[in-house]
């Protein structure tokens, strides 16, 4: 699969949008974190602390993931849109390694982007406190297991965009569907579940569960992350099977 990985690395690294999106994924959540941290610092103890138990990180990560979704969706979306997939599959006739090389290269890129984004969020949070005069507060949840889960959360989020695009060959859908699910559909479903007392729903919804994996601790956090990963597989496995069987 080394040839496929080299191909994917050149593919992903030679489009400006990859670098622009990584930059946006660093700057936009960090800017928001700076603003929120500044407000919290100005309001003092009455503000009630960071947005959640995750030190605020889990509040900004969906924004990071949403920006990076386009990188995941582009892995297949750009190729189908511009007919490149026929060149790709003429060079690499075995389709399964192509699918996994794309997924792996997207995942590696997103790991790097997520680490950079988390680092800038943490720096921005600290800087916001300094500007507000309350001093720098370092978000300790960005390190260790919690930080690792944060990175994995972003990777799964983007890989779901990747899998939706691979399944549907529709790049806009691949970008929009995870974002709509995460910020619109799941909050509505969660509200209904709360009213109805369906506590189990918290273990079913992928994006809410993924965010909970960052803000919670221990086995529960890893459990949420496993559910999120399971949802990725539920979409990715049919996408892989269809990719291998259908016309290019």
């Amino acid at each position: 699969m080394s040839g496929e990985l080299r191909y994917e690395w050149v593919r992903i690294s030679t489009v400006r949008s990859t670098w622009a999106l990584i930059g946006l994924a660093m700057l936009v959540p960090a800017g928001l974190a700076l603003f929120v941290s500044y407000l919290v610092g100005n309001l003092g103890d009455d503000a009630g602390g960071p947005p959640d138990g995750g030190g605020g990180l889990s509040a900004f990560l969906p924004l990071t993931a949403a920006v990076l979704c386009a990188i995941g969706a582009a892995a297949f979306g750009q190729e189908y849109r511009h007919g490149l997939i026929r060149i790709t599959l003429a060079i690499f006739p075995r389709r399964t390694p192509v699918f996994f090389a794309k997924a792996l290269m997207v995942a590696i890129t997103i790991v790097v982007a997520a680490v950079l984004s988390i680092a800038t969020i943490v720096l921005a949070q600290a800087l916001g406190g300094v500007i507000a005069g309350s001093g720098a507060t370092w978000d300790n949840t960005a390190w260790g297991a919690s930080g690792l889960r944060a990175v994995i959360y972003v990777v799964f989020f983007v890989l779901i965009a990747f899998a939706i695009t691979a399944l549907t060959r529709n790049q806009p859908l691949g970008i929009i569907a995870p974002i709509v699910l995460a910020v619109l559909i799941e909050p509505i479903v969660s509200t209904i579940a709360f009213v109805q007392g369906w506590s189990w729903m918290g273990w079913v919804l992928p994006f809410s569960g993924g965010a909970a994996a960052v803000s919670s601790q221990g086995a529960e956090a890893w459990g949420h992350l496993a559910v999120f990963g399971g949802w990725f597989l539920i979409i990715a496995i049919p996408a892989w099977i269809v990719f291998v069987r259908r016309d290019a």
Binding site: G3, R6, Y7, V10, R11, T14, V15, R16, S17, Q78, H82, G83, L84, R86, I87, A90, I91, F92
Partner: peptide
């Protein structure tokens, strides 16, 4: 070597980078 479509490349990737990508295999 194949050439099946009239514009089989990404409009935003330079000609040289397009060939660099094809050269990897």
């Amino acid at each position: 070597g194949t050439h099946l479509d009239a514009r089989p490349f990404l409009p935003g990737r330079t000609a040289r980078d397009h060939l660099r990508m094809l050269a990897t295999e």
